[in-house]
């Protein structure tokens, strides 16, 4: 049973719109947005899929902070009984709370965040030493769900549209450290370009807001170290 009312403001094409939403004890921000769409205004557009923090679809700005809304409890983010929901920052808005994720995924590919295999089906599977230092580095970043929360949080992305962003660069770092990936030269070249890892100011918003508690800032620092080593030793 609703015990109270939440004052919800949602940023839409024509400006912010207010809604009164019944408050429950256990309620996520996604529940609130869904309530509005199902009960107050069916034209409200937003995006979600799994509702359990796996798919990375439902990220939005909540009270000015990027969050995965399906795993964000209203009680932890409300300002009094008020809550302000908007589309993710740093991405083009399609409608209401749905943003165009294309720039985010295009940069993922531009950072060589793709598998670079060197084996055929006739070769045996590459041996992965779980305890090796490189595997530990790779493991630290592979749980990224592509939610773009770090991308929305990043002030460098906000000021520099060409910057590849934390998620893409972190994936480049995990692949660089992956024994199964043979694209190290391509990766280091990709992250050394005009929009590459060297644009990062280490402000740390990516690491602060990552819902999976990953550390893209340290991954990017790793890329800076590796590219610098390459610069001195191989001149590239």
């Amino acid at each position: 049973m609703p015990s109270d009312v939440l004052h919800v403001t949602i940023d839409r094409a024509n400006g912010p719109e207010s809604f009164e939403v019944p408050a429950y004890d256990n309620q996520t921000v996604l529940d609130v947005v869904s309530w509005v769409q199902q009960n107050a205004d069916p034209t409200l557009s937003y995006r979600f899929a799994c509702r359990v923090g796996m798919c990375g679809s439902c990220a939005m700005m909540v009270n000015g902070v990027p969050r995965w809304t399906c795993r964000t409890h209203v009680s932890k983010v409300t300002d009094g009984a008020a809550i302000h929901v908007g589309p993710l920052r740093n991405l083009p808005i399609i409608k209401d709370l749905a943003v165009d994720m294309d720039p985010f995924f295009d940069k993922w590919v531009a950072a060589e965040g793709v598998h670079h295999g060197g084996l055929t089906r006739d070769d045996s599977i590459a041996v992965v030493d779980e305890g090796s230092a490189t595997r530990v580095e790779a493991n630290a970043g592979i749980e990224c769900i592509n939610c773009s929360v770090c991308y929305a949080a990043c002030d460098t992305v906000a000021g520099n549209a060409d910057y590849l962003g934390p998620a893409a660069l972190q994936r480049a770092w995990t692949l660089l450290n992956d024994a199964k990936d043979e694209g190290s030269v391509a990766i280091l070249d990709a992250v050394s370009g005009d929009g590459g890892c060297h644009n990062c100011h280490s402000m740390g918003s990516c690491t602060l807001y990552c819902p999976n508690e990953l550390d893209p800032m340290s991954a990017i620092a790793g890329l800076k170290r590796e590219t610098a080593k390459n610069f001195f030793w191989r001149g590239r």
Partner: peptide, 12 residues
């Protein structure tokens, strides 16, 4: 905007 060469020049 800031590639590896400019980054290295600034750090060195």
């Amino acid at each position: 905007m800031l590639g590896l060469r400019l980054y290295m020049a600034q750090r060195i």
